[in-house]
Amino acid sequence: MATTKPKTANGYDADHTLACERALITLLRGFGTLKHTLRLVGGLVPRYLTPEKPPDVPPHAGTTDVDIVLNLQVLTDDEAYKSLATQLKDRGFTRHVNKEGKASSWRWQRQVSEHEYVLVEFLRDADEKLQGGKVAAVDGEDISALAIKHAGIVHEWFAEKEITAELLDGGGKATETVRFADVIAFLVLKSLAFDDRAENKDAADLVHVMRYAGTLEWIAQQFIDRQKAGQHRDAIAGALDALRRRFCDGEDVEGYERDGPVACASFMHGADADVSELRILEQRNVSGMVTEFLRLVEQGPSIHG
């Protein structure tokens, strides 16, 4: 099972995204008192932040995996941890095995059809003891989590929605409350993710949510309000800096030539020569939108006066 993310939107499909949602609901269904502590991040979140409403809100490209941020304060309790590990196995999740045949402790997979699997990745906040990009065991044995810088913001900055989906293995339909990164948390984490790993999908996800989650003025005001509240200032500052360096004019480089707009346009339109004009137009639109967003944020404290 490959874990490399597709470079263009054509590598994603609605059926697999639905399978990811079914895997998520199946996972939540078995976690009892733990499920309210789990936070969804990553490529499945735009499905809930920007529900498809043609023609105003087009469908999001989708995702190939499910990313869950764990609350380590809860998982330090032995009984809670055992419940998490046991329920993963009871619900049919197994450790992901890489190409070298090594089983992962932070990536788990769930078979959803004869030849199709959904990958579930467990994440945690980085701290002074574990820097971003490192993996550490939750209890030293059966399950681990990948440390992501500022991932812990989602424990405070989240939205929730009741989702009904068909459980895997014919378990019937179930309704669960999904708690996921809110608009600001999503944009912050995606900005930092693109700055770190330069994936086309990260840039495209970021742009999609910035375009369709609300007006640019509203999103900018949310950033301003969070700044005024003094919450997670380092995370916000890091995200705004990443957006400026990756999407905007500077250092004798025009914004549309930056790697952010290029990555987003390449994801949406591919690299073929016959769509080069579409790519350039998208690059200019993306750079212009991010530049205006930053102007609005810097204009604070209230863009509505």
Rank of each mutant, 00 (worst) to 15 (best):
A229W: 08
I303L: 15
S144P: 13
F247R: 06
S302L: 15
L216C: 06
G171P: 00
A213V: 02
L28S: 04
T86A: 10
V262E: 13
L75T: 04
N10F: 09
E52R: 03
K228A: 10
L192T: 05
K82E: 09
K201N: 05
S144V: 12
P54F: 00
K89L: 13
F93A: 10
L38N: 05
R246D: 14
Q283R: 09
S83Q: 07
A19H: 12
I184L: 15
Y81H: 01
L75E: 06
C264Y: 01
F93R: 04
R179L: 13
Q73G: 12
D67I: 01
T86V: 14
T26S: 04
I163F: 14
L40K: 06
T177A: 10
E282C: 06
V207S: 09
G270C: 12
I224T: 02
E100W: 13
Q283A: 01
V57R: 00
D67F: 08
H115N: 07
T63W: 01
F158S: 06
P6W: 09
K201H: 01
V207C: 07
G270L: 10
V253N: 04
E176H: 12
A273Y: 12
D274S: 07
N10T: 04
R245N: 02
R211T: 00
Q111D: 02
E160M: 12
D195T: 02
L49D: 00
S302R: 11
L130K: 10
R29Q: 14
F267W: 02
S287V: 12
V45Q: 02
S83F: 05
Q283D: 01
V286W: 01
L38H: 05
H269C: 06
L49C: 06
A174G: 07
G11C: 09
L88P: 12
G132H: 05
T86P: 03
D169Y: 13
H36V: 11
D196P: 10
L189C: 14
Y117N: 08
G30H: 10
L84A: 04
V262W: 14
R279D: 08
A126S: 14
G250D: 05
G172R: 08
A174R: 06
V97I: 07
D65K: 00
A237T: 09
F293T: 00
E277S: 14
P58D: 00
L119N: 05
E79L: 14
Y212A: 04
Y12V: 03
I236P: 15
V66H: 04
A237K: 13
E257D: 13
D195Q: 08
L168P: 00
V120G: 10
M268W: 10
A145V: 11
L192I: 15
A2S: 15
L168H: 07
A2M: 13
M210F: 12
P46Y: 07
L281W: 08
L294V: 08
A181P: 02
V74P: 06
H96C: 11
K53S: 00
G255Q: 02
F194L: 13
H16M: 11
T64R: 08
D241C: 12
C264R: 14
P58H: 01
V118T: 02
A9L: 05
H60V: 00
K149N: 09
H36E: 03
D274Y: 09
S113R: 10
S113V: 07
